[in-house]
Design a protein around this nucleic acid. Structure first.
Lengths: 140, 140
DNA sequence: GTATATGCAAAGCATTTGCATTAAA
DNA sequence: TTTAATGCAAATGCTTTGCATATAC
């Protein structure tokens, strides 16, 4: 059973077949999908689901703070990370785009000295590591 | 005189009016432009310059390692950073998209423990800080 | 003179929007 | 019954591509 669906129900989210399927797709996997990948997987369970509903729902889940939208250098499409509840960063394969969560030893916010803030109210940081994943390294 | 043009000439780069103008636009400013902003500024000096040439040239400069392509969360278009020669990170205004360079106190590569590399050959990191710039903070 | 860059216009991909239809509560 | 979500298809924004023309070397 999905914790995500559980939380959404409690928040009074209108529960449709499409939304249920999307939440299940996001919850079930540990890699982070693009909107199109979410749609492809959702279609297997609910053939009539439209791309528009996928985009609508993903946008809402982001607004609710239940998932995170992630953009990478070079990557065309955004990816959606269901792990919004624990601070973490990402490790991305420059060859195939695969992304996985990583946990750092120190808070990156502390690395930006006061003198480098230029009057900004800094509220967030993203740290992204790039490299080759084991399977892409093998085919080099 | 442009250091960028100087280096490119030494590398045997075929020097056209368009390329010269683009290099000058990039060199002259300290903020990081989108392709469209580069085009708009280039047009002031060379009215017939096409968007295609701007994209071609920016892509080449990135390939040559003379400029850096930067993508941010939420920001639609990529931005081009002429400061490719000194390691640095970025501070972005979530409201207006303005981006400026910042320098960290510690090497972010060191924050990713061995046990969190999962067989990847990690070769690069980006750290991006998000917040409100002074002028956007003023209108809140 | 020859290889390469340019400009145009069309195509591409990810995403958003407008609006009539459908379904949850 | 009412309010909100869905699906379609068209529109958008950024970027890439194909190809004939122009130009640096």
């Amino acid at each position: 059973m999905s914790d995500l669906l559980e939380r959404l129900r409690e928040r009074g989210w209108r529960l449709t077949a499409q939304r249920r399927v999307i939440a299940e797709v996001l919850d079930g996997e540990h890699i982070h999908f693009t909107a199109d990948e979410v749609h492809a997987r959702a279609v297997r369970r609910l053939p009539e689901i439209s791309r528009a509903s996928v985009y609508n729902t993903l946008g809402e889940l982001v607004a609710l703070g239940e998932i995170i939208e992630v953009t990478t250098e070079g990557g065309r499409a955004k990816r959606y990370d269901p792990n919004a509840h624990q601070p973490h960063q990402h490790l991305v394969c420059s060859a195939c785009g695969t992304m996985r969560d990583v946990h750092l030893t120190s808070d990156p916010m502390a690395s930006l000295p006061e003198g480098e803030r230029f009057g900004f109210t800094v509220s967030d940081v993203t740290v992204t590591y790039y490299g080759r994943c084991p399977s892409c390294a093998a085919e080099a």
